[in-house]
């Protein structure tokens, strides 16, 4: 356990001091603050605009950071031989992958937490108390970001940084549109093609339920059970991805 914690702590320390990541975080905070300008156009819908734009920024920048960090963490260390000093010690490679993911997840937790705190602060300045619906939306947004980070680590375990980034972004976008894909597949008459495509769609992460911004903005409650099941689904999917990443990385030649 100690090696995993040490790798996670080192990853967190390195990421949180990284100037590129900090710059993106400042930009994200600026975008969230820009909702005050947008709210000026919304007349009596100021709070809704603040929530809608704020939740969008948290999700978009969080996913962007998850892809950037998840893809780069391992690649950078392989390219610069940083991980040689780690893997030449008596630790199995799966611990390295797990520690890297844990460190990335902790960094994302802090960064998304900071953005969420910024959004809550803006709402308080507007005189609107943040409600439980907003909290649920933020929690599932965080779960989705951690799932995307696991996707990035998975693709990075066997492909180049650009391809990994492309695959992760593509899977995220497709995952957000899974219901559309399911409808399309249901229209296919040929049984064999239908079965293959349905299998493929089932293998993709279903990210539709992670987006609760509409519910949070329009005051539609989502039961805690639904939130919990969605979060558990994300956890299970991320765990599966991490197992695959550890298996692939353990067999990889580090040239």
């Amino acid at each position: 356990m100690r090696p995993i914690l040490s790798i996670a702590a080192t990853t967190f320390r390195e990421s949180i001091r990284n100037r590129t990541v900090l710059a993106i975080l400042v930009l994200a905070a600026g975008f969230i603050a820009s909702s005050l300008l947008l709210a000026e156009l919304a007349l009596d819908q100021r709070v809704r605009v603040l929530k809608d734009w704020g939740l969008f920024c948290v999700a978009a920048f969080g996913v962007g950071l998850a892809i950037l960090m998840g893809v780069n963490q391992v690649h950078k260390e392989v390219r610069r031989k940083t991980l040689y000093a780690v893997l030449s010690r008596p630790i199995p490679r799966w611990k390295y992958v797990l520690g890297k993911y844990a460190g990335t997840a902790l960094t994302l937790l802090v960064e998304v937490g900071a953005l969420a705190a910024g959004l809550v602060l803006l709402l308080l300045l507007e005189g609107a108390a943040p409600d439980i619906l907003l909290l649920k939306a933020l929690l599932l947004s965080l779960a989705e970001i951690l799932l995307v980070a696991a996707l990035a680590v998975f693709f990075a375990s066997f492909s180049s940084p650009y391809l990994s980034g492309f695959f992760t972004l593509g899977t995220f976008l497709v995952g957000r549109s899974v219901t559309v894909l399911v409808d399309l597949v249901e229209r296919i008459d040929q049984a064999s093609v239908h079965a293959v495509l349905k299998g493929l769609v089932l293998a993709l992460p279903d990210l539709v339920d992670f987006n609760l911004s509409t519910q949070a903005v329009h005051g539609i409650d989502t039961p805690w059970a639904t939130v919990g099941i969605t979060a558990l689904y994300g956890l299970a999917y991320a765990t599966g991805l991490l197992f695959c990443s550890m298996w692939i990385f353990s067999r990889r030649n580090l040239t």
């Binding site: 390195e14 990284n18 000093a85 030449s88």
Partner: peptide, 29 residues
Amino acid sequence: RARVAYLPELPDFYDYLRPGEFLAHCGRL
């Protein structure tokens, strides 16, 4: 590798860590 040390060719390490932090990390591993 428990009783083995390795120095890679032209090594590079973490950009934002201080040398002491890095050595402590290696020691824990």
